[in-house]
Structure formats: structure tokens, C-alpha cells
């Protein structure tokens, strides 16, 4: 008989981060069917119970964009010159922003949705995170199509830089997921946390160049320049419309910092789940 796999469950904390990362990645690989199946299940169920189905994935950011376009066109609010047709600016801002917020919220939502499951069955919990990422890919793909559509619709035209768009979106997904992974364990314990995050993101949108550009001076300019989401939104939009990326260095730094943080986030998530199961079911 072949050697049996041995599992040991005990208190002693394992602080060997590389080993934990390796275990986490092994579990992600081994549970690839599970994560796909869970994503497929949720997407299927979601659309089987709705007529408008896919439309809901992007209707809310489009509405926000449309409101701002209306405010601008009607002269209620005067935004400074954005350098590109304002509708493209607003729609691209809200769509990219929605990708970012969705990726922050997804690890928490997937885990919360599987609450019953994680307290009863032992399976690689990373599958929940990965299935969330699959669902985001699905939704983001539609949003990207939408973006490209607007670019041509409003006469901005084709630029080679658009081919780099997926990379920028991927950076947004990675950054969002990393933040989400750190928030999830605490938000599983206290429902206040996810409410605070929701509110905070709503506020954060207005100090990020989502629907208006960075002003020339003042407090808002300082806030926007420090805000780590600014390079993400601006760079993605610049790639989309073929402008020279203004924040490329900041963008690359943020991206590179996020990659090791993502792995640490995975480890934190992994070692936190047993505590969540114990305390909140």
C-alpha cells in the first residue's frame, strides 16, 4: 500500500510563511475543479433566475456615469477639462472603479456565501477566493467590452496601448483582491466592518479621479496624488484612450508591492478560517 497522506491538527502556530504559501498554492491547484464548479454554479443560478441577467453586471456603474454626464452637460456641475470626451471619461472611470470595488468585496462575499459550507465540510478554502476571481473575470470581461465600445462610439479611436488594458485591469483585480483578503477575516466576525468598507469606498471614489480629473492645486489634489487607487484608475484610462500614462511609476510600484502582499493575504486568510468557523456560526 502506498504511503498515506498524514494530517496533523494542533494549536501550535505555523509561522513558516514560505511553507504556508506553498500549501496555499498547492490547495489552489488541487481545488481548481472545485473553484470553477462553484463559480459556474453561482453564475448559472444567478442568470437562471433573472431576465435581464448579464445587464446587472454593469448597469450600476453606467448609471453613476450617466448621472455625472447629465450633471456636466446641464451645467449643474462644471468639471475641469479632462482632455477626452467627458462621457468616455466618466464611463471609463465608473466602470474601472466598479471592477476595483468588486474585487475588494468579492473574497468577503464568497466566504460569507459559503458560511454553511466552511463550518461543515473541510475543503480548500482558497477555492472560494479563486471562484470569486472567476466570477470577477466574467463580470469584468463584459465591462471591458463596454469600455472598448465607448471608446469607438465617442470617436476616441483605436490606439495600440489598448492591448495593454487587460494588464491594467489585472492589476486592479490583484490590488482589490489583496485588500479584500485582509479585510475578510475581520468582516466575517463583525458585520460592521463590511458596512464601513462599503461606506468608505463610496467616499473614496470622490478623492479618486473617477468622474472628474485631478485639480491643479488645493487639498483635493494632495489627497488624489497620495491615493493609491489614483494611478490605477488613471493608468487604465490612459491606456484605453491612448494618452501618455502620467502615473506609470506609481502604478508599477503599487502593483509590485501588491504581489507579495497578495501571498501574505492568502496566508492570513488560510490561517484565519478555523477561527472564523469557531466563532461565527
Amino acid at each position: 500500500m502506498s504511503e498515506l497522506e498524514t494530517k496533523i491538527y494542533q494549536r501550535a502556530n505555523n509561522h513558516n510563511i514560505p511553507a504556508l504559501i506553498r500549501e496555499s498554492l498547492t490547495d489552489i491547484w488541487n481545488s481548481r475543479f472545485l473553484s470553477r464548479q462553484l463559480a459556474e454554479r453561482d453564475i448559472k443560478a444567478q442568470y437562471r433566475q433573472s431576465y435581464l441577467g448579464i445587464v446587472w453586471a454593469f448597469v450600476s456603474p453606467l448609471m453613476t456615469g450617466a448621472v455625472w454626464i447629465f450633471l456636466n452637460l446641464s451645467g449643474t456641475i462644471q468639471v475641469s477639462d479632462t482632455g477626452i470626451p467627458y462621457p468616455v471619461y466618466a464611463f471609463s472611470g465608473t466602470l474601472i472603479w466598479s471592477i476595483l470595488t468588486e474585487s475588494i468585496n468579492t473574497p468577503g462575499n464568497s466566504t460569507r456565501g459559503a458560511r454553511g459550507l466552511i463550518s461543515k465540510i473541510n475543503f480548500p478554502k482558497e477555492a472560494l477566493v479563486v471562484s470569486g476571481i472567476y466570477k470577477m473575470f466574467f463580470n469584468s470581461f463584459l465591462k471591458i467590452l463596454m469600455l472598448v465600445l465607448f471608446v469607438f462610439l465617442f470617436g476616441v479611436g483605436f490606439h495600440w496601448s489598448i492591448l495593454l488594458l487587460p494588464v491594467a485591469i489585472l492589476a486592479a483585480l490583484i490590488m482589490g483582491t489583496t485588500i479584500g483578503l485582509f479585510i475578510t477575516p475581520i468582516s466575517m466576525l463583525y458585520s460592521d466592518v463590511s458596512r464601513i468598507i462599503g461606506m468608505g469606498l463610496g467616499f473614496l471614489m470622490y478623492i479618486t479621479p473617477v468622474v472628474y480629473s485631478i485639480p491643479g492645486s488645493g487639498l483635493m489634489r494632495v489627497l488624489m496624488l497620495y491615493n493609491p487607487f489614483t494611478p490605477l484608475i488613471v493608468t487604465t484610462r490612459d491606456l484605453l484612450v491612448g494618452a501618455t500614462p502620467q502615473f506609470l511609476t506609481y502604478f508599477l510600484i503599487a502593483f509590485l508591492v501588491c504581489i507579495p502582499l497578495l501571498f501574505i493575504g492568502l496566508v492570513f486568510y488560510r490561517i484565519s478560517i478555523p477561527i472564523i468557523v469557531e466563532r461565527s456560526n
Binding site: 494530517k7 491538527y9 469557531e278
Partner: peptide, 8 residues
Amino acid sequence: ILNGLIKP
């Protein structure tokens, strides 16, 4: 605990 859902 035996199932590894929570740690002892």
C-alpha cells in the same frame, strides 16, 4: 476538530 474545521 477531527475533521480539521477548527483547531484544538
